Computed example of a mutant assay.
Amino acid sequence: MIHFISKRLKHSLVLLFLASVVCFTLVVSAPGNVAVLIAELRGAVAVPGYVAQVEEEIGLNKPLLMRYVDWLGDAVTGDFGISYRTGQAVSADLPQRMMVTGTLIAGSAVIATLLSLLLGFLGAFWPYKLPDRVSRGLALIGASTPTFFVGALMIYGFSVTFQLFPSFGFNGPISWVLPWLTVAVLPAAVLSRVVRVGLEEAMTSPYVLTAKSKGLGRTAILFREALPNITPVFINALGTQVGLMTATGIIVEPLFAWQGVGDYFLAGVRFRDFMVVQACLLIFLSFFIVVNLIVDLAVLMTDPRIRRQWS
């Protein structure tokens, strides 16, 4: 087990390094001259030699490899540079925005997990009957509906029509409900099918027949026998969906006026604020890598076959 954990940690470190290379390469490959943009923002683009002065000031005249090493060294210590648009340190804006995005992803993951288990168990408890058909239909609709459209429906239905929840702002738990539901719809739909199919396959296994011969009811068999056997598969699927929620947050945060990392990333792209874009990309990729590491460790803890393989 220790060998497995150390191997996964090494792989994660390699992936983090490659993620930093990708982030830096994508940003420096973008068309246009950053120095000209900064000079325009400062209103001095027409001053002779000012663009060259800006290039020297922000290090654009250095070799590409040296620029990457400087940026990576600063990023490791938490210094992501200065925003070209605001002149403020990017690292000063990130903690609050990461808390907002973390709240969005954590709450949505919990709701998606609960909804998927509910829909999956409804279908498994009454297979091929009305509850199963309803859960399948809801999962199909949820998986087919674009996230921005779900958000618009949430705002129109629960905020404009019934006035139950606020439609914008990060102002306490009541304002978190609609963004959580918006992000959770697609993952819940996908995960509910994972649960339903997994339970259906588990109910055909020989140990289920043994449990029935002992007099256990369908509910007890689903929870005590079938659910533990689909847990590793569910954790894998949940990890993938949580990673994808980072991309969903880029759409949902501006929709509900949440000032998270996704909103910060869009502002950086819109104003060609490359230091912000690099920092946000690195955070997104690092989050995805860390989530996958946690998922692998969780699967190791819940799947005795993998534990025996690496023991």
Results as ranks from 00 to 15, higher is better:
residue 230 I to S: 02
residue 311 S to T: 13
residue 213 S to F: 05
residue 31 P to A: 10
residue 227 L to V: 03
residue 269 V to I: 15
residue 258 W to Q: 01
residue 204 T to S: 15
residue 271 F to C: 04
residue 10 K to Q: 11
residue 200 E to W: 06
residue 115 L to Q: 00
residue 187 P to A: 10
residue 5 I to C: 04
residue 185 V to Y: 04
residue 177 V to S: 02
residue 135 S to H: 06
residue 14 V to Y: 14
residue 95 P to G: 06
residue 127 P to R: 10
residue 172 G to E: 09
residue 48 P to R: 06
residue 73 G to L: 11
residue 12 S to R: 01
residue 293 L to F: 15
residue 169 G to S: 11
residue 69 V to D: 08
residue 110 V to F: 14
residue 257 A to S: 12
residue 165 F to K: 05
residue 44 A to H: 07
residue 111 I to K: 01
residue 166 P to A: 05
residue 81 G to N: 11
residue 83 S to L: 08
residue 53 Q to D: 13
residue 267 A to H: 08
residue 46 A to M: 13
residue 91 S to D: 09
residue 286 S to T: 15
residue 253 E to P: 11
residue 231 T to K: 04
residue 304 P to I: 07
residue 33 N to Y: 10
residue 198 G to H: 03
residue 42 R to A: 07
residue 306 I to N: 07
residue 43 G to K: 05
residue 4 F to A: 09
residue 162 F to W: 15
residue 263 D to T: 13
residue 241 Q to M: 14
residue 69 V to T: 14
residue 146 P to C: 13
residue 250 I to N: 00
residue 21 V to Y: 05
residue 41 L to A: 12
residue 106 A to H: 00
residue 32 G to A: 08
residue 122 L to M: 15
residue 255 L to S: 04
residue 224 R to C: 04
residue 177 V to L: 12
residue 231 T to H: 00
residue 7 K to E: 09
residue 100 V to I: 14
residue 114 L to V: 15
residue 21 V to T: 07
residue 3 H to R: 14
residue 232 P to Q: 09
residue 119 L to C: 03
residue 157 G to F: 13
residue 296 D to P: 13
residue 298 A to R: 03
residue 230 I to T: 00
residue 151 G to Q: 10
residue 32 G to N: 05
residue 276 V to Q: 02
residue 107 G to S: 10
residue 294 I to R: 02
residue 94 L to Q: 02
residue 98 M to D: 05
residue 3 H to I: 09
residue 242 V to E: 04
residue 253 E to R: 08
residue 166 P to L: 04
residue 273 D to L: 02
residue 23 C to P: 07
residue 242 V to I: 15
residue 121 F to R: 04
residue 292 N to I: 05
residue 211 A to S: 14
residue 77 T to W: 08
residue 111 I to R: 01
residue 153 L to Q: 07
residue 244 L to I: 10
residue 248 T to P: 03
residue 38 I to V: 12
residue 187 P to D: 11
residue 40 E to I: 04
residue 208 V to A: 12
residue 34 V to H: 01
residue 268 G to T: 01
residue 87 G to H: 12
residue 267 A to L: 10
residue 198 G to L: 04
residue 58 I to K: 03
residue 84 Y to P: 02
residue 269 V to P: 01
residue 56 E to N: 15
residue 81 G to H: 06
residue 13 L to H: 01
residue 9 L to K: 05
residue 253 E to V: 10
residue 96 Q to G: 12
residue 162 F to Q: 03
residue 154 M to S: 11
residue 88 Q to M: 06
residue 202 A to F: 00
residue 203 M to G: 03
residue 117 L to A: 01
residue 7 K to W: 12
residue 162 F to N: 00
residue 97 R to P: 01
